[in-house]
């Protein structure tokens, strides 16, 4: 039972993170390899705001979430906009470089020590019993709820709103979309903002649960196979992929070796790439195949 509960929590974490990869990839075909660092940035913002507004933890949380939305927007306008229309791989390399830059800056500003935003916020994280001797922490429960709400909201957003429709159109055919009067740069900026928003949320929740340190980048990178296994341009795929990767990881930890947990997602990734490179729910013709 406890294994099952852990599985659901890990799936929720991966789903929250991998949705950021999907959002950007779906709209602009760029893989954002700085996502782990952006996640961490969100968590650090929460820490700083929490130290600033000692009285209002809710205010600090809302502020950090808002700021991480802004970070994505600014990043696109200042940096990634220059890469629009360039080779996709060059844009991906820019995100890698951006990740290094961010990591250096974050160590400079917040040092490399492990931080615990939850104690600064003054919140508690009691375990919630689920019956049958299983329990998960309250933050983990919140993570599951946030993931469910976020995914529902995003799916409705893509289906029914004007902006969601425009994002889908741009993802499918940027040229045609631009000719129909859709502002490409605005749509791309929105995708980046939403991506850092969801990533930031994931980072904050992760930091509340287990502290804030350099290991978060690895978690961010491990969520990327989840996105790819499900299909990089499919939100539903991201959830399924997260579940598969989380399941493989937890099984490997239980039956093989805890050390292997960092590798399992990538083994799953290779297997998927060899069999079905476009993922479970991805669009087949999108892949540059030989």
């Amino acid at each position: 039972m406890q294994v099952l509960a852990n599985l659901v929590v890990l799936t929720a974490i991966y789903a929250l993170i991998s949705c950021g990869y999907v959002l950007i990839y779906r709209v602009s075909r760029v893989l954002n390899l700085a996502h782990g660092e952006l996640m961490m940035l969100g968590a650090y913002l929460l820490f700083t705001l929490a130290s600033l507004f000692k009285g209002g933890p809710e205010l600090a949380f809302a502020g950090a979430v808002g700021l991480s939305l802004l970070v994505g927007f600014v990043l696109y306008v200042v940096l990634m906009r220059k890469m629009t229309g360039e080779l996709v791989i060059a844009a991906v390399l820019v995100t890698i470089a951006l990740g290094i830059l961010l990591r250096g800056l974050m160590v400079l500003i917040w040092t490399a020590r492990d931080l615990h935003p939850i104690s600064v916020l003054g919140w508690k994280n009691p375990p919630v019993p689920l019956g049958g001797g299983t329990s998960i922490s309250s933050v983990a429960l919140a993570t599951i709820l946030v993931a469910v709400v976020l995914y529902l909201a995003l799916m409705l957003f893509f289906r029914y709103t004007r902006w969601g429709l425009q994002m889908r159109a741009v993802g499918e055919r940027p040229l045609l979309a631009a000719q129909r009067g859709i502002k490409l740069h605005a749509v791309y900026a929105l995708a980046w903002a939403l991506s850092t928003f969801s990533g930031g949320l994931a980072g904050m929740l992760l930091a509340l649960d287990s502290g804030l340190g350099s290991t978060m980048v690895i978690v961010g990178l491990k969520a990327f196979p989840a996105a790819l296994v499900g299909g990089l341009d499919s939100l539903l795929g991201a959830v399924v992929g997260s579940f598969i990767v989380a399941a493989a990881e937890i099984l490997a930890i239980h039956f093989i070796d805890p050390l292997i947990s960092d590798v399992v997602p990538f083994v799953v990734l290779i297997a998927m790439l060899l069999v079905r490179p476009w993922g479970l729910f991805g669009t087949k013709e999108e892949i540059e195949r030989v």
């Binding site: 290779i270 790439l273 892949i287 540059e288 195949r289 030989v290």
Partner: peptide, 11 residues
Amino acid sequence: LRLKGLYLAVT
């Protein structure tokens, strides 16, 4: 032999 660009990098 099967993949190129981004997907090859990831593999």
